[in-house]
């Protein structure tokens, strides 16, 4: 201490904490990957918002995904809004917040899209809209998309991301599962292609309906896919479940998905799948 006191240049007054320093450091520059826990500089995630360490695709909004996925897009049912059938307390407040964050009126974006020359009906669920939960509007937009695709004889591609049924719309959310499934079946009966891409997280009523009904089921690396949530399982049966039980990789091993595709490859792989199913399956025909 003697030395510090004598040498004025290193005096305590010079190394006092700068109390305002914290405010000047921007937040959100460093992000921890929720899967491999690596700390990542935000710019390293790149256009596709993917962890460079483990390939996990971060949760992005439907419009962010749309930006790099398609070459052309006409939105459908953009103005459809829920009627709040249960008059649920504080539901409207929650909806407003989600609408601001996602630029959507409910948890899915639907429309007719093109990758190169391949035209298809596209739906992208947004995990940032009340956890991508499926309410009446979600169900109606998807059903309408399938009916529209059937009329126009187009394939359907759906990106799923959902915590399950929307609690605030109760039984009406549940009914959407059967409604959508019946529309999927009609579309399928006409020999039309349906591809699902499971993104983080795909669970509950969405897994138990249209997510698992694709002719081809793809998933992004390391995403969570399951029916009952981990906490629900543990609190119901009072047993620990392994951490990787509902990883895409485990679900693939168990035989429920066709392939895991990295985000940056999605556009090209989907284009190929669309092409190989059009014109009676004659590629280059």
């Amino acid at each position: 201490m003697q030395l510090f006191n004598e040498l004025k240049t290193l005096g305590q007054q010079h190394i006092k904490a700068d109390k305002k320093a914290g405010e000047r450091v921007p937040s959100g520059l460093w992000i921890a990957c929720p899967k491999c826990h690596q700390s990542l500089y935000h710019k390293d995630l790149g256009t596709y918002q993917v962890c460079p360490n483990c390939e996990y695709g971060f949760r992005i909004t439907a419009r962010e995904r749309l930006a790099w996925l398609v070459d052309d897009f006409k939105e459908l049912d953009a103005d459809m809004k829920t009627t709040d059938p249960l008059n649920f307390p504080d539901y409207n407040k929650k909806l407003e917040k989600s609408r601001r964050n996602t630029g959507l009126n409910d948890s899915i974006l639907t429309g007719i899209a093109k990758i190169q020359t391949e035209e298809f009906a596209l739906g992208i669920m947004d995990p940032n809209f009340i956890m991508g939960s499926m309410g009446t509007v979600t169900g109606e937009k998807i059903t309408h998309l399938f009916e529209d695709a059937l009329k126009k004889r187009l394939p359907v591609i759906l990106f799923t991301a959902s915590g399950g049924a929307r609690m605030q719309e109760g039984i009406f959310s549940l009914m959407q599962m059967a409604k959508i499934s019946a529309a999927v079946r009609r579309h399928s009966n006409e020999g039309l292609l349906y591809i699902t891409v499971l993104t983080d997280p795909t669970t509950g009523g969405v897994t138990a309906s249209f997510a698992m009904q694709g002719d081809i089921i793809l998933a992004e690396p390391r995403v969570l896919i399951g029916f009952a949530g981990k906490r629900v399982i543990e609190q119901t049966i009072h047993q620990k479940v392994p951490n990787n039980l509902q990883d895409a990789e485990t679900v693939l091993e168990r035989g429920f998905i066709d392939a895991i595709v990295q985000r940056r490859d999605l556009k090209q792989k989907l284009e190929w799948l669309l092409e190989s199913h059009s014109k009676g399956g004659l590629v280059n025909g």
């Binding site: 897994t207 698992m212 896919i225 399951g226 029916f227 009952a228 399982i233 119901t236 049966i237 047993q239």
Partner: peptide
């Protein structure tokens, strides 16, 4: 809701 159910595809 359980481990075995998830493994054999409850959702599916």
């Amino acid at each position: 809701p359980g481990k075995s159910a998830e493994e054999s595809g409850q959702g599916e």
